[in-house]
Amino acid sequence: MARVFITGSADGLGRATADTLLHEGHEVIVHTRNTERLAAVKDLVHRGASAVVGDLADAGQTRDVAAQVNRLGSADVVIHNAGVYSGAQVLPVNVVAPYLFTALIQRPRRLIYLSSGMHHGGRDTLAGLDWSGTRPTGSYSDSKLFVATLALAVARLWPDVHSNAVDPGWVPTRMGGLGAPDDLRLGHLTQEWLATSDDPAALTSGGYWHHQQRREPHTAARDVTFQTGLLDALAGYTATTLK
């Protein structure tokens, strides 16, 4: 059984993933933005999950969440699920937090980053971005291109880790809306499969997945120059280097 840390586990795909993995007997670490949100995962904790707390829009709190996870022991898998759709916090939550967790959490065996089909509309430029979230400078599509790029960069740099990006589809969650057309179960199945399966296809790295099928990501996500530029920009902003 695996120990799996899932960011943004209070609702939506993160909670659904935690619920499934707990049911399957895995050790799960759930995450909420603040202590008030712990009530939303109370049932998961009663079933054996551990909980960590911190607002991923704040880099200091993100570092503290990483420390909380490390104190619980080495995670086998980290699922970077937390995300916001709009506003100034898109880059801090969707990109900076996954980068800091990747750099600070004891290296797991598997890493899964939630991207989106909308990443194909992202801009492959790093100019003029405010990673702090003081002002909105990056769109949701931009952020999902950046996080897919991060996943594929880690796959290249860490050959001993299975690092993949996932497009969960447009599913009926709080973010996706009740009218979203895709299957909610399929929206978290791929993450669970990549996190815990011994299927040879799941034991691969550097993929961009949709419903357990490899898809081709935006060309920039595989571009080493763009990957390097993104990592350098994030290292410069956070004063934390991915080693």
Rank of each mutant, 00 (worst) to 15 (best):
A2H: 15
R3M: 13
I6T: 05
I6L: 14
I6Y: 06
T7M: 14
D11Y: 05
D11S: 15
G12V: 11
G14T: 03
R15K: 13
T17G: 10
D19G: 11
T20N: 13
T20M: 14
L21D: 03
G25Q: 10
G25W: 02
G25A: 11
H26L: 09
H26M: 13
H26W: 08
E27W: 02
V30F: 01
H31P: 04
N34A: 04
E36H: 06
A39R: 14
A40V: 12
A40W: 00
V41R: 02
V41I: 15
D43G: 10
D43A: 13
V45Y: 02
R47A: 15
A49E: 07
A49T: 02
G54F: 03
L56C: 10
A57S: 13
A59V: 07
A59C: 11
R63V: 05
D64P: 03
V65K: 03
V65F: 05
A66H: 00
N70H: 08
R71G: 14
G73I: 01
V77S: 02
V78A: 08
N81E: 02
G83Q: 02
G83N: 07
V84T: 11
Y85T: 06
S86L: 14
A88E: 06
Q89T: 11
V93Q: 01
N94L: 01
V96I: 06
P98C: 05
L100S: 01
F101Y: 09
I105C: 11
I105D: 09
R107V: 04
P108D: 01
P108I: 01
S116N: 15
S116E: 03
S116M: 09
M118Y: 03
H120L: 12
H120W: 03
G121S: 11
D124R: 00
D124I: 04
L126Q: 04
L126R: 01
A127N: 10
W131L: 12
T134G: 13
R135I: 14
R135Q: 13
R135G: 06
G138I: 02
Y140P: 05
S141D: 05
D142P: 06
S143V: 05
K144T: 10
F146R: 02
T149E: 08
V154A: 11
A155N: 13
A155I: 11
R156V: 08
R156P: 01
L157R: 15
W158D: 11
D160E: 15
S163N: 10
N164H: 06
W170E: 07
T173R: 05
R174M: 14
G176I: 04
A180D: 06
A180L: 12
P181K: 15
L186T: 12
L189G: 10
L189D: 12
Q191G: 09
Q191W: 05
A195W: 00
T196C: 10
P200V: 01
A202S: 14
L203W: 00
T204V: 02
T204W: 01
S205F: 05
S205C: 09
S205Q: 10
G206C: 07
H210D: 04
H210N: 02
R215C: 09
E216M: 05
E216Y: 08
P217V: 06
D223R: 14
G229S: 12
L231P: 13
L231Y: 03
D232H: 07
L234Q: 08
G236C: 12
T238Q: 14
T240F: 07
T240E: 09
